[in-house]
Each structure stands twice: as C-alpha cells, then as structure tokens.
C-alpha cells in the first residue's frame, strides 16, 4: 500500500496519458470508421474493394504490430513526424496506429447496423431524389448508429484498454509502462496493480452504462 501511495503521482500522470490517447482515438476512429463503412457499402467497386482490403488487413493484424509499424515503418523509415519533440511525436504515432486499428472495428459494427435498416428506407430515400451520399448520411447511417450504440460502446472500451500497449510504438509514458518501470524498483506490488485496474474500471464502466442507456433511449421504433 505504501508503494501505491508513493508512486501514485507518477502512475496518475501515466494514466492521464492513457485517457488523452483514448479521447483523441475515440474521435478519430469514429470518423475514420464511418468513412470506412461508406467505402464498404459504396456503389463504386474500387472503393468497396479498398474498404474490404483495409479492414481485413488491419483488423487481423495484432495491435502491437500495427503500433510497431506506425513507429518503425511510418516514422523511422518513411520519415513521418508529427513533432520535433520526441514525446509529442510518440503520442501521435500511438494515436495514429490505435485509431487506424480501432476504426476497422467501428466500421464493422456500423456495417452490421446498416444491415438492420430495412431496404425500403434506402429505396424511399433514392425515390425522393437523394444521392447515394445523402441517403447514407441522412437516412441510413443515423439509423445504423442507433442500432449499434451498444456494440460501439464495447469497441470503445476495448480501445481504452488498448491504450496500454502504447509502449509497442516506443512511447514510454502511459500507466502500464510506469507500472512496469515501478516494478523494476519495488518488485511486483499488488496494490499498485489493483489501483491501476480500478482506475481503468472507473473509466470503462461508465462508458458501458452510458452507451447502454443511450441505445435504449435512441432506439428507432419501427
């Protein structure tokens, strides 16, 4: 218990990094996932193929490898840098990899949501003269989102926990890294371990409750 109190400021700072990564990734992955699903249901075969290949490659690659690619491939080899400051650069490389990865799950959740929208909705949208993008944006996606708020909550919870593999991108700042680093000094400390678990649950449990409540509230009555 003394260890937990002693190292609490470091751990808290690390946990704040996890929260920051999660917040930015939530926004980017939801946007990117929506773009991806638009590709996958597009009438243009090239876009459909691009969406399918992207989802199947990235979704089936272990996250640690995606992050390693983000750091070693994109940053070191190709030279993609977000900032001269190494820690800022590391933060954005993690965000990039984790968002690219999470977006595939968002896209697939949305695609199953689209399947719950009756075909007649799309036909009616086309029949009044809406273009493909308009009917997607105004009619199909709003109903699809409401149908999969619960599953999207699960994707977000998984993403929040996935922020702990940030060190795979060489970004040594998040709480999981701080914990391991601390254990090097103190040996394994059960209180630190449990403290960190509770911190994550304090974030993820409300996400689950909130999305559950929201999905009931916004359910589309047919």
């Amino acid at each position: 218990m003394d260890d937990l109190i002693k190292y609490a400021p470091d751990l808290a700072a690390g946990f704040l990094v996890n929260v920051k990564i999660a917040l930015v990734c939530a926004v980017i992955s939801l946007v990117l996932g929506t773009v991806l699903v638009s590709f996958r249901v597009s009438p243009t075969p090239v876009l459909r193929a691009a969406g399918t290949v992207y989802v199947n490659v990235v979704r089936n690659t272990p996250l640690t490898l995606v992050l390693a690619f983000s750091a070693l491939g994109l940053s070191d080899t190709i030279g993609l840098t977000f900032s001269e400051e190494p820690s800022t650069n590391g933060f954005w490389l993690v965000v990039l990899g984790l968002s690219a990865y999470t977006a595939t799950f968002v896209g697939e959740a949305l695609r199953s949501g689209i399947n719950t929208v009756p075909l007649g909705q799309a036909e009616a949208a086309r029949a009044i003269g809406l273009t493909f993008l308009q009917s997607l944006r105004l009619i199909i996606l709003p109903q699809a989102f409401r149908a999969v708020i619960g599953p999207l909550g699960s994707v977000m919870i998984a993403m929040i926990k996935n922020t702990t593999v940030a060190l795979a991108a060489g970004y040594l700042a998040d709480s999981a890294f701080v914990m391991k680093d601390t254990f090097d000094d103190t040996g394994v400390s059960i209180p630190i371990f449990i403290g960190l678990v509770l911190a994550f649950m304090a974030v993820t449990l409300p996400v689950g409750f909130f999305t559950g409540w929201l999905s009931r509230r916004l359910a589309v009555v047919r």
């Binding site: 009756p118 007649g120 909705q121 036909e123 009616a124 029949a127 009619i139 589309v220």
Partner: peptide
Amino acid sequence: VFQSFNLFSH
C-alpha cells in the same frame, strides 16, 4: 408510394 410505406423511421 410503396406497399410498405417506407417512411423514414427516425
């Protein structure tokens, strides 16, 4: 006008 109305449910 469709058999199953197809009004936008949301």
